[in-house]
Amino acid sequence: MAKTESTFTNMVATMVIIMVLAGLSLAGVVNLTADAIAKSEKEKMESALKEVLPPFDNDIAATRKEVKVNEKDKLVLYFAKKGGEDVGVAIETFTNKGFSGNFRIMVGFRPDGTIINTSVLEHHETPGLGDKMDVKKSKFPNQFKDKSPADFKLQVKKDGGSVDAITAATISSRAFCDAVQRAYDEFVKQGGKQQ
């Protein structure tokens, strides 16, 4: 096969053909993966809910409630019930005080306001330092378990609070406390149950 000449028409035609083919195949791939992407997002949310809530039997997705904080940020609440009784509230909360910008975590509260557990949804903190706020990476988040923010001061010890900061990641620890505090404030505002 002879090499195509570098004439203007040839060049334009080749580029257009490749571009159309590339665009079409990409559109196909995007369509094919759209379901999988939506499904993996949903699974992530569901597993986070299971982690931070006691066993429940209601349709938790139906209790989803959004609270807008400002035009960009929001809190999302989920209410867990078992046998018709409130057993806990999961609040998806955020902070913009992270070392590398925003991160989102999920916090579960019992009806009396004690923290059940926390789960990190999305973050950009430094690997090896700030990412230790994830329970899979270190025991840092365990200290929040069974504590009520009413008497457990959500600040690092350096700032006069009750939280042992992650070594060398004070900023991430502070931001984590900030996010949990924001969730607790909303929990108190909502009275701890679905209205």
């Binding site: 002879a2 090499k3 004439t7 080749t14 580029m15 490749i18 590339a22 195949s25 990409l26 791939v29």
Partner: peptide
């Protein structure tokens, strides 16, 4: 390789690569 005119070689390559990267 034989269908691509020599002068737009590099842009064409980048286009092909970028497509697979997006996939």
């Amino acid at each position: 390789k034989n269908l691509i005119p020599g002068k737009v070689r590099i842009p064409a390559f980048i286009l092909v690569i970028a497509t697979f990267v997006t996939i």
